[in-house]
């Protein structure tokens, strides 16, 4: 089980997180073609090497984070919090 360094909670087991998938830009809904949209929905690059992906700390701080992970070694070289931060809100 890999460890994910959560920006809010520190390194935690991946079982606390939900994998959201590779980061992708949402196409403009007004102009998108079917092919582009379904590529966005269903096609993953799944590279051998570094990938940028989103994880949701569903059993933790409930914050989303972006991680750079190596798909072969599972090394995570950076994580970044997304959205509004801090526990005040």
């Amino acid at each position: 089980m890999i460890l994910i360094p959560c920006p809010n909670c520190g390194p935690r087991n991946s079982s606390e997180f939900t994998y959201e998938g590779e980061n992708k830009e949402r196409p403009n809904a007004a102009t998108v073609t079917k092919a582009q949209w379904r590529n966005y929905l269903y096609l993953k690059n799944n590279p051998l090497g570094w990938t940028t992906e989103t994880w949701y700390h569903s059993s933790g701080c409930k914050k989303f984070l972006v991680a750079e992970r190596h798909t072969m070694t599972n090394e995570i070289r950076s994580t970044k919090a997304l959205g509004q931060q801090g526990g005040a809100s």
Binding site: T18, E20, R26, T54, Y56, S58, K62, K63, F64, L82, G83, Q84, S89
Partner: peptide, 19 residues
């Protein structure tokens, strides 16, 4: 639904004022 709403708030529209 909670995760879905938070997902859009945190990853899509962090500038929105919604708690």
């Amino acid at each position: 639904v909670y995760a879905h709403l938070e997902s859009w708030l945190q990853t899509g529209f962090p500038e929105w004022d919604v708690t």
